[in-house]
């Protein structure tokens, strides 16, 4: 899968990229919201992993802009964060995130499992829409 990873923490970008590449994914990275939005349009990733807190545009706003744009609205976006408060999770899910991943609760391999589950769910949804 082609994964766009948007996070301003270079260490996390490096760790998650290394892990996901070892599972065969192609990784594109962006260190802020503006670059992330641009790469979502130009690179057409299969899935976006988006940090909640970014230096220029906040993760939720990036999410909203992705979902409002016809070119990117169908790309599944999973939020990443070291915040774990329920109100933040609910807000992200209401804005259109397919999941909210608390970084401190997972092992890096979990991202591969999660991406595969997201893509499977997207495929099932597409199949259902074709049936009807």
């Amino acid at each position: 899968m082609k994964v766009l990873l948007i996070d301003d923490d270079e260490a996390i970008l490096s760790v998650y990229s290394t892990s996901l590449k070892s599972h065969g994914h192609e990784i594109i990275t962006a260190v802020n919201g503006k670059a992330g939005l641009e790469k979502a349009k130009t690179e057409k990733p299969d899935v976006v992993l988006l940090d909640q807190v970014l230096p220029d545009i906040q993760g939720n706003e990036v999410l909203r802009l992705l979902k409002d744009d016809s070119e990117t609205k169908d790309i599944p976006v999973a939020m990443l964060s070291n915040f774990g408060q329920n109100d933040l999770i609910q807000k992200a899910l209401n804005t259109g995130a397919v999941d909210y991943i608390r970084k401190y609760e997972i092992e890096p391999d979990y991202l591969d499992t999660k991406i595969k589950a997201i893509m499977k769910s997207k495929q099932s949804q597409a199949d259902n829409e074709q049936t009807f």
């Binding site: 760790v15 070291n82 890096p108 391999d109």
Partner: peptide
Amino acid sequence: HMIVHELRAPVVAIKDSASILLSDKL
């Protein structure tokens, strides 16, 4: 919350780097 968030960032990076190292896949 802000303190915990900021402390979690390097700890998560350390934990996950160690996890990848232990996988012997690198």
